[in-house]
């Protein structure tokens, strides 16, 4: 009996899982033949395993439907988040890093806005009739979308310009190349009127919401079509042609 009991007991655990090399297994067997305590130890370990196996808990009877219910809720939540991204819950406890990022983003946005509006506005000059030609048409910027607000008082001269001059900025918030249909184009821009602009923002939000709803519906249709394709008896899609 060359092997010590401490070593033999360590090997016993591995022997239970058939993890020991044959040579060591032989040595262990020799030790067990000669050592009653280690044989008892082995029996205890085996009994422990049997006890664990015999006392497996069972699930409650309503587990399955509760699972289906929770899964449906989770899927609905996931779908809702896709459709209405702005309704997502704000992460809590972002700490100073989050606040700092927000503050920095606001600061940067303010600087950019100033840079955008002050520069070009400052160059608007009245024509011979004292009219501000830039405001009569539209303040087109690159890409065709004019969403700039005249911020500095100097550039707000049209406010005091004759009434006949249309001050509205006729930029469009359309979908550009993505919109095949003119109905999608929102033909309004910043008016300079606070309430009116808020209404525009509201309308844009609604449009965004509708588009997201449409997107969600398309996603649903895709998933239905995919399910049709998955069906064993499916022979491809009937596209109605």
């Amino acid at each position: 009996m060359n092997m010590r009991c401490t070593k033999a007991r360590r090997y016993l655990s591995q022997a239970m899982d058939e993890q020991l090399p044959p040579a060591v297994t032989r040595q262990l067997d020799e030790h067990l033949d000669a050592c009653r305590e280690c044989r008892d130890f082995r029996e205890d370990l085996a009994l422990g395993r049997r006890l664990l196996g015999a006392t497996e808990p069972s699930l409650s009877g309503n587990f399955d439907w509760r699972l289906q219910l929770k899964l449906n809720q989770a899927l609905q939540k996931a779908a809702g988040e896709t459709a209405y991204p702005w309704l997502e819950e704000k992460p809590r406890g972002r700490g100073w890093a989050g606040n700092f990022t927000t503050a920095a983003a606001f600061g940067l946005a303010a600087v950019l806005a100033l840079a955008m509006f002050i520069g070009p506005q400052g160059r608007v000059m009245p024509d011979d009739a004292g009219r501000y030609a830039g405001f009569e048409t539209s303040r087109q910027v690159a890409g065709g979308v004019s969403d700039r607000l005249p911020l500095n008082r100097g550039a707000l001269a049209p406010l005091s310009a004759p009434r006949g001059i249309q001050r509205s900025v006729s930029g469009s918030f359309g979908l550009g190349d993505f919109s095949p249909n003119a109905a999608f184009v929102l033909d309004s821009g910043w008016s300079g009127n606070h309430l009116k602009d808020l209404a525009t923002i509201q309308e844009l939000k609604l449009r965004n919401q509708r588009l997201n709803n449409q997107l969600y519906q398309y996603q649903q249709q895709i998933s239905i079509l995919r399910r049709q394709l998955d069906r064993p008896d499916s022979n491809g899609l009937d596209l109605g042609r």
């Binding site: 808990p57 699930l59 587990f63 509760r66 899964l71 989770a74 899927l75």
Partner: peptide
Amino acid sequence: EPVLAEELTQETLIRVYI
């Protein structure tokens, strides 16, 4: 705790799906 264990079992399976 059986109730908690069931919840975590469900949560595991939901994560598998999602």
